[in-house]
Nucleic acid binder design. Structure first.
Length: 430
RNA sequence: GCCCAGGUAGUGUAGUGGCCUAUCAUGAUUGCCUGUCACGCAAUCGACUCGGAUUCGAAUUCCGACCUGGGCGCCA
């Protein structure tokens, strides 16, 4: 019976393991093999004078990264990794690996991200890469758990849509029988419609598609969005949900992913503390004006240079709140007493934007007015506007980028490292 | 979309007009080696993205193509 490598101890007596040949060292009369599965690494030691004929034949033939089944006696050995080693009675090659390998799993020689992504299946055999995705899994588990406990309903909305309704970003056109269609950039409008349905609290974790031709370490053309919408809530209510979610997710990773964090050589994993500072947009501009050379004025978008300068000043997670209505989407609710600013916010990590959200406009006529002001045609929004005429509750929500959350949490240099098979301007395969 | 940088063995690199029959590491193959853990030692194998131009001579300069990394805008 095969057992996980991690659970092989000197007390095991005998053991059978199945894994990949991580490293081989042949000293002549004695050969060492490191066998790796997803739980760990064990040393298999072959004393050639005493080993069975079949074992000798197998170890002579085997190549690195082949899948092997090894069974034998477990011996305590201080010099071996994990304090034990396996002396094989049988050594069977289940699947021979070709040679040379497209990249070095042992990391004696580094590989560029492009090479790694081309051979992602091999790249992900490296414990530090596997760790990223195990942590991502744990984080997503914490997030869904948080929503379920808070009484949210999980929904799924269409990724194939008829028109570019939200404005702003470019959409991917697709062939949809005889109609024009696009891949959806965001579940925004659909989750709002479910407020009209009376669901009150919904969440969706799913893909979003943006056809922007950017070439950076923080953009993907296919990303995962963690989205919520909450009825009878304002922007402050959903900011509270967001910061609690971030804190809980970090705490869950810290509590359950010790091995993975160690594999990533992260020794100072800190759980951020809520509440995060609320920095009014006007003050953010003030900080940027003091810290950066390039001119920036109230009413401008906060560019990358400004964003970094402000992040440096803030030092941790923070919200930028009270944005000018003019530079936010039409669905952001303006303040009653000063409609030039609105109830929109961005959640920032010092390195980049993680999330943006707002209390939404729930009044039909105001929404039409705002759509028109943005230079869009309300007639194209009929499917979206219709629910606003039949009892739309006040509501608020946000969208959080899953990859950016993982990237900033683990301090990954490139957002592509937080996706198994990233889609960017150049990469469509694998 | 705009701008910058780059493409050399399987991988990561050195090389800036002749010292290149191309460096180093890793890897692979073979031999030696009984406690390695980046094992060691020896030998061998393996590469200048493609096309054109300049030149006596091009990995190196120029032009074009293809591919890639990054910055900005924008955004999750």
């Amino acid at each position: 019976m095969r057992i996980p490598i991690q659970s092989v101890t000197p007390a095991s007596g005998t053991a059978e393991v199945i894994g990949w040949v991580h490293e081989m060292r042949d000293l002549g009369g004695l050969a060492f093999f490191l066998i790796r599965d997803r739980t760990g690494i064990i040393q298999v030691t072959v004393p050639k004078k005493k080993a069975p004929e079949a074992v000798l034949a197998a170890v002579k033939a085997v190549s690195r990264e082949s899948v092997v089944r090894v069974a034998g006696t477990v011996k305590a050995m201080e010099k071996a990794p994990g304090g034990r080693e396996l002396i094989p009675d049988t050594f069977e090659i289940l699947s021979m690996s070709e040679s040379p390998l497209p990249l070095d799993v042992v990391e004696k020689v580094p590989a560029e991200l492009d090479t790694r992504l081309d051979a992602r299946f091999l790249d992900a055999r490296r414990p530090r890469v596997a760790a990223v995705f195990q942590i991502r899994s744990a984080a997503m588990h914490a997030i869904t758990g948080f929503f379920e406990r808070a009484g949210f309903t999980n929904i799924t909305t269409p990724k194939i849509v008829a028109a570019a309704t939200e404005g702003g970003t470019e959409l991917f056109p697709i062939a949809y029988f005889d109609k024009e269609a696009f891949l959806n950039q965001s579940p925004q409008l659909y989750k709002q419609m479910m407020m009209a349905a009376g669901f009150e609290k919904v969440y969706e974790i799913g893909p979003i598609f943006r056809a922007e031709e950017h070439n950076t370490t923080k953009h993907l053309n296919e990303a995962t969005s963690i989205d919520i919408e909450v009825s009878f809530a304002d922007h402050n209510d959903v900011m509270k949900i967001l910061e609690d979610l971030i804190v809980e997710t970090y705490a869950h990773v810290r509590n359950t992913c010790g091995t993975q964090l160690a594999n990533l050589e992260i020794t100072d994993f800190e759980v951020p503390k809520a509440p995060f500072p609320r920095l009014p947009y006007a003050e953010a501009i003030g900080i940027a004006q003091k810290k950066i050379a390039e001119p920036i004025r109230y009413g401008d978008d906060i560019g990358t240079t400004a964003e970094k300068a402000i992040g440096e000043e803030m030092g941790g997670h923070y919200f930028i709140v009270d944005w000018p209505t003019e530079i936010r989407p039409y669905y952001a609710m303006p303040y009653e007493d000063d409609p030039s600013i609105c109830r929109a916010f961005d959640l920032m990590h010092p390195r980049m934007e993680l999330s943006s959200g707002a209390q939404r406009v729930h009044e039909h006529d105001l929404l039409v007015k705002q759509i028109t002001k943005k230079g869009l045609n309300p007639e194209n929004f009929e499917f979206y506007l219709r629910p606003f005429r039949y009892g739309m509750p006040p509501h608020a929500g946000w969208g959080l980028g899953a990859e950016r959350l993982i990237q900033t949490m683990l301090d990954l240099g490139n957002v592509r490292e937080a996706v198994l098979f990233p889609r960017d301007m150049h990469r469509l395969v694998p």
